[in-house]
Design a protein around this nucleic acid. Sequence first.
DNA 1: ATAATAAATGTAAAAAACACATTTATTATA
DNA 2: TATAATAAATGTGTTTTTTACATTTATTAT
Lengths: 228, 228
Amino acid sequence: MDLYSDKDKFYVAVDCIIFGFDNEKLKLLVFNRKIDPFKGSLSLIGSFVKIGESVSDASIRILKEFTGLENVYTKELRTYSSVDRDPGYRCISVAHYALIRVNETIKKLVEEKGAKWYDIDNIPELILDHNEMTNAALKRIEEIARYKPIGFELLPKKFTIPKLQTLYEAIYRRKLDPRNFRKKILSFNIIIKLEEKDRTSSKKGAFLYKFDNTKYKKLQESGYDFEI
Amino acid sequence: MDLYSDKDKFYVAVDCIIFGFDNEKLKLLVFNRKIDPFKGSLSLIGSFVKIGESVSDASIRILKEFTGLENVYTKELRTYSSVDRDPGYRCISVAHYALIRVNETIKKLVEEKGAKWYDIDNIPELILDHNEMTNAALKRIEEIARYKPIGFELLPKKFTIPKLQTLYEAIYRRKLDPRNFRKKILSFNIIIKLEEKDRTSSKKGAFLYKFDNTKYKKLQESGYDFEI
DNA sequence: ATAATAAATGTAAAAAACACATTTATTATA
DNA sequence: TATAATAAATGTGTTTTTTACATTTATTAT
């Protein structure tokens, strides 16, 4: 613990609140720390910002290191900067939330790194102010989901309408009516029906759709809004 | 310019995008720099964060210094952290936007400090990335105004409905229908009609209202929304 | 052939948003 | 003291959006 102290200068860190969706529940990626400081405790995935990179570059680097993914949907949440938030450094952290498409490759990769997915309504105690960050991020994505189609970031490229609904139910934490939900989603004209069906969760099978980014951008330009 | 260089460590700054409303137009507070760096140029109001204060404490300090006001509505916008954004320091800036009630006292005070109000659709060239910050803040308050009653932060404690409408027209940059606007605002039940009238802009005079914070909080708790 | 499963579909009622023109209170002045 | 001028205040019908709600359909397994 020798090096863990420097209170005369600012350190800048990025912490990432990484959300995934396993077709049923929203999940948070949590890291089990193997070295000091906070060895054995749980934390968000983070890193110091290097002097030669921007804060958003740092967040991209962290996401890449941990998930192997580039081009992840990542947004700045806010800074955390209480003088005594970290007992070792005078460190301000710029929290970012990220939404990723979980698949088997990523599942393995994050396990190897010592990270684990936790159900959002069963989040363990995390170090420092990381629980506070997580709660703020959850609140934020609930707000954002009302007017940006972030749901698509969490689903596979091809998804069914019932799965999309389950996801929004997880974000809003309430049940939605399947008829009204489908009607509303289709009215935006930003998803394209495919020929294929997904039969993993019913005998009848549900048609797969994909997100139409071009059309969404047009919708946004002409006055947007995406209230579900 | 001797001291103006230290690129080996992080400096943390706060820049404030301060908005006011003069009963007609939305205004931005801009500072005319009298000393180096950037002597003679225009900038937002900012300061380095001290090692012993949080970022939000710094923003409160800045607002107090410049306007004499405490308890100003201030929110974090985002960080600006490009490696080369400031040629002198390796400095990340946490931009904050603030909404203040302009009155004669404040007008005088900011003038003494060498600051000036600019119409939001006539903003001059500012140093560094301050124009970028300003544009982002304008976009943000337009978004926020849709679901939080921030308009009241910019108006005097007592205001008329036509003035409130003018303010929202300035924020949204479009005309609103006076009948529908009044109906909508009153439907929220968060403003209280007073006996007094303001006769400065018509012979008939318009009734003054005040914002009912208690009722607004209740509204928010029970599912909120404030779309005008 | 039948049972089981989740997907897909339509409609009527209620609420909200929108478009739109006239009257009212007051002061200044002819 | 009548009139002109000014901005404030008000109401209604139409359209759009939201909400609530139950049955049929495609498919597989038994």
